[in-house]
Design a protein around this nucleic acid. Structure first.
Lengths: 210, 210
DNA sequence: TGTAATATACCCAGTAGTGGGTATTTTGGG
DNA sequence: CCCAAAATACCCACTACTGGGTATATTACA
């Protein structure tokens, strides 16, 4: 019996996956969640063999949730289920410990195939995504977490991308507004960008990569 | 027998809906599409009683597809199926002729309820969205325009998306800076957005289709 | 011709952000 | 222990943008 947990922010999509798996006698769904934090709690309690994980979720994104699950329960198989087909998203989920990646624009049945594969210890990646895997193996030896931006800068850029003002960011981080503004200036200099608009575009276009 | 077509850019989500409806003997799915143009073609040929329509689709968005379907086949019932719960999205779909609106974070079974309602000639809106409907009745008289935004507003939004300042935009258009700033304020009001960041995100996400 | 929407332009009183710095403290690695 | 990078904080002088308006001219449609 393969036990499965599902993390996906839209209930309608969760229900679709449930319907898919309902008739698989060897698979049982032990829990579902619409945010990363709740999913993590379910996984801790139920310890499913497989977790189907959206990348973008409230409270804790799929990448960090994957990392934490693999840390706590290393045998858990993680399948990313996402709309993103960019190399960076695939890499980040892979680097975090996922061994499967299903795109939302694939047939839903791909999830079933992915469950079978990862359960056997194999990887599963939708067709064209496999091209990213070899690179990822390479990239891993190089700069797994290298970025031009420092930790604080990345944190602040994410908040900028969420349309927080410098004042709001300062409150969230318990620092001075001038600290935040210094960080933004530093990022603009490092990245060769001019102003909030270009910072925002940079963040949006790179999603999780900065 | 209720005939249904589905337009949604993720095949996995389409498959979930198919699974939901597969056991409803009085409902048959006559076609599915992952872009608005293909959906329109299917609707022309098969003339389903109900169309389930995502808003964001390639080639032709759900709002315009809804408009065109209602123009050609006025009796067709349209149900929006979307992640957006903003008033504007609900209004625009309603104004285009949709009589149902299901959120992706509702249970998938809401789709079935929506199909039953709209087929009877009733409206169907997820709980909290109903508050938007009364306003929409007003807006109905307005809707010939493809967009909420006027011609000048769209032009200015494109320039904002290219990171031009209001001063630069004024120079480019041979108008006063205050004219540009009035337009930005008008756009923010119409779209329910707060500030340059949200305007920029709106423009980037729509790739100038607004 | 009348009306409503659009476009234009401005005002006042703010907040947000930027350029170009100086300076001190903390942190992490060699 | 030393050093470089990161983090923090501030200063001055500005530009950019926003909220909340008022007002007139132009355009398009009934």
């Amino acid at each position: 019996m393969i036990t499965v947990a599902i993390g996906e922010d839209h209930q309608a999509v969760i229900d679709g996956i449930k319907l898919l798996l309902a008739y698989e006698e060897h698979i049982t769904i032990v829990g579902t969640a619409t945010n990363g934090q709740a999913l993590l709690e379910i996984v801790k309690v139920k310890q499913p063999a497989v977790v189907i994980m959206d990348i973008r979720m409230p409270k804790l994104d799929g990448i960090e949730a994957t990392r934490q699950i693999k840390k706590l329960l290393p045998h858990t198989k993680i399948i990313a289920f996402s709309m993103f087909d960019q190399e960076q998203a695939v890499r980040q989920m892979r680097d975090a410990g996922a061994t499967g990646y299903v795109l939302k624009n694939s047939p839903l049945a791909s999830i079933l195939k992915a469950i079978e594969s990862v359960t056997k210890g194999e990887d599963y990646y939708d067709g064209e995504l496999e091209a990213f895997i070899e690179k990822s193996a390479f990239a891993k030896a190089q700069t797994p977490s290298h970025s031009v931006l420092s930790k604080s800068e990345r944190e602040i850029l994410k908040l900028i991308a969420q349309n927080k003002t410098s004042s709001e960011i300062a409150d969230l981080r318990f620092t001075a507004v001038s600290t935040v503004e210094k960080h933004r200036k530093n990022m603009m200099r490092k990245l060769g960008l001019a102003g909030k608009g270009e910072l925002l575009r940079y963040a949006i276009e790179r999603k999780y990569d900065f």
